[in-house]
Simulated scan of single mutants.
Amino acid sequence: MAIFIFFAALWYLSLFSQTFFQHRYAAHGAFTMSKGWEKFFFIFTYITQGSSYMSPRAYAIMHRLHHAHTDTELDPHSPSNSSNIFAMMWGTRTAYQQILHNKVEVEARYTKNLPDWGAFDRFANSTFSRLMWVAGYILFFIVFATNPYQYLLLPIVISMGAFHGAIVNWFAHKYGYINFKLRNTAMNLLFVDVLMLGESYHNNHHKHPSSVNFGQRWFEIDPVFYIIKLLNSLKVIKLAYIPKQQMTIS
């Protein structure tokens, strides 16, 4: 039981860090926060993502490139450019590493207003850090696993962020339904998205990239939107406005 609780906690905490801090805040600037809170969420993201931690700055640049060049050869992660999901995941990793280590020239328009904590990111993205987390995960499984089949979850735990990215970036560009006609393949993968905390409303997101609420129709529940509203009321973050749940799409 401990393994499954740990897996579920890591799944959602890691995913929350991705969608709240790296995606909605870093990439799209859907809200603002103080530098103190920004550093807090750097650390929170590192702790919750562990061995699959991604620099919010590098993630934001890569994601902005994705929106600017969706489904073209300049898109850092599109099923249109890969023969299978594993090839896309490897291509995403390569694009991320190039941006992280400044091995590719990035236009200035993609680097504005980014969270940046260089010293912390260098440590968090280091081989030592990743191996430390992997060792910790393996030790946890050794202590708490009650059946050998539970070790099948270990590779997912180690590369949790890659699995989250693959679900949205591959499947939400191939399967689902469409609320908005766009010049790309982005679709809404799930009708009620509890599994991906709103991230699977990909068609909605490509239509309104900076919207803090990824849901558009009455049944499209975005759990993180309500957490954002709470953090706004607590003055942890600041929203320019709080959008009402959309109910006008038939």
Score class of each variant (00 low, 15 high):
89 M>A: 14
217 R>V: 10
90 W>K: 15
138 I>D: 08
42 F>G: 00
172 A>D: 07
30 A>K: 11
110 Y>I: 05
173 H>S: 00
21 F>Q: 04
54 M>D: 01
156 I>K: 03
179 N>Q: 04
28 H>T: 12
16 F>Y: 15
117 W>E: 12
216 Q>G: 01
70 T>A: 15
106 V>A: 01
25 Y>Q: 01
161 G>A: 05
73 E>N: 11
206 H>F: 10
243 P>F: 03
60 A>V: 09
9 A>I: 15
209 P>C: 06
126 S>N: 08
181 K>W: 00
146 T>F: 02
77 H>L: 08
63 H>M: 07
33 M>G: 03
147 N>D: 14
100 L>M: 10
215 G>M: 07
185 T>V: 00
162 A>P: 00
195 L>E: 14
217 R>H: 07
243 P>E: 09
146 T>G: 14
31 F>A: 08
205 H>C: 11
80 S>D: 06
125 N>P: 06
230 L>P: 01
129 S>H: 05
88 M>F: 05
222 D>Y: 12
53 Y>Q: 05
186 A>F: 01
100 L>E: 14
238 K>M: 09
163 F>Y: 15
225 F>I: 06
161 G>H: 08
12 Y>D: 09
205 H>L: 09
60 A>Y: 09
14 S>Q: 12
56 P>Q: 03
50 G>H: 03
48 T>S: 15
176 G>K: 01
209 P>H: 05
59 Y>M: 04
210 S>L: 07
238 K>W: 08
212 V>P: 10
248 T>W: 09
26 A>E: 04
70 T>I: 09
134 V>D: 04
122 R>A: 11
250 S>W: 04
146 T>R: 13
180 F>Q: 05
63 H>P: 06
71 D>K: 01
178 I>L: 05
209 P>K: 03
79 P>Q: 08
93 R>K: 15
158 I>F: 02
187 M>I: 03
106 V>L: 03
42 F>P: 00
163 F>T: 10
143 V>T: 14
44 F>I: 05
90 W>L: 12
76 P>D: 12
94 T>A: 11
111 T>L: 13
185 T>P: 00
232 N>G: 02
19 T>K: 06
6 F>E: 06
121 D>F: 02
212 V>W: 06
